[in-house]
Amino acid sequence: MAVVFEKTKGLTDAPFHYCPGCTHGIVHRLVGEVLEELGVLGTAVGVASVGCSVFSYNYFNCDMVQAPHGRAPAVATGIKRCLPDNVVFTYQGDGDLAAIGTAETVHAATRGENITVIFINNAIYGMTGGQMAPTTLPGQITQTSPYGRDTATAGHPIRVCEMLATLDGTALAQRVSVDNVKNVMAAKKAIKKGFENQINKRGYSIIEVVSTCPTNWGLSPQESIQWLRDNMLPYYPLGVYKDVTEGGSSHE
């Protein structure tokens, strides 16, 4: 009988712990498929960051290091500087990347650190139970913005790709989503480009995936997808913010 679908070798057999409707699972699979397709599972080293995805070291079928909260880009830098020919990636959430790890993120990017960053933006802290994130939308209710995020006191959400696109060391800054099949395919293409950039020594690539958190948003999986389309995508427009392979300036 012909095999019509086979799970990627890029993931282990450990069952995901993620909530129903959470998009981590889809993104994990895309990363795993890309690593397998590029034939780099044997040389890949992933860096798991603090947040729901900290357990990604159980799922990606490659060597892994678990980093302190926000420090994944620094840990990845240490690994990459020792193993320049290995493929090194981080998998970070919004609190990790854009709050506690902002300095590490900005400086890894501006150094043109030759790593690939998968950034899950779901506008909330998931693992700790739904607090306001740096990317929580204005007016969005969370455990620590119970009356809705008031930009007068809590400030404005950060648009990470737009910010990092201003840095000379950034090779690719692209925002994608996995809310429908077309976008899933586009996301995979972007992730693949992010890893290819690294293999071609182009510098820092970040793929921001606008994601859902049904549990902490208090919505069903289907409602979450709709909420993402209605609220997240207008604030965080999908698109390529910088791409040195498309005529942009290379950091080298």
Binding site: P68, K80, A103
Partner: peptide
């Protein structure tokens, strides 16, 4: 960029 980053770079390098 900081002492915090420096020690975490050491963590990554030491892990290899």
């Amino acid at each position: 960029e900081s002492e915090v980053s420096a020690i975490n770079m050491v963590l990554g390098a030491a892990a290899t």
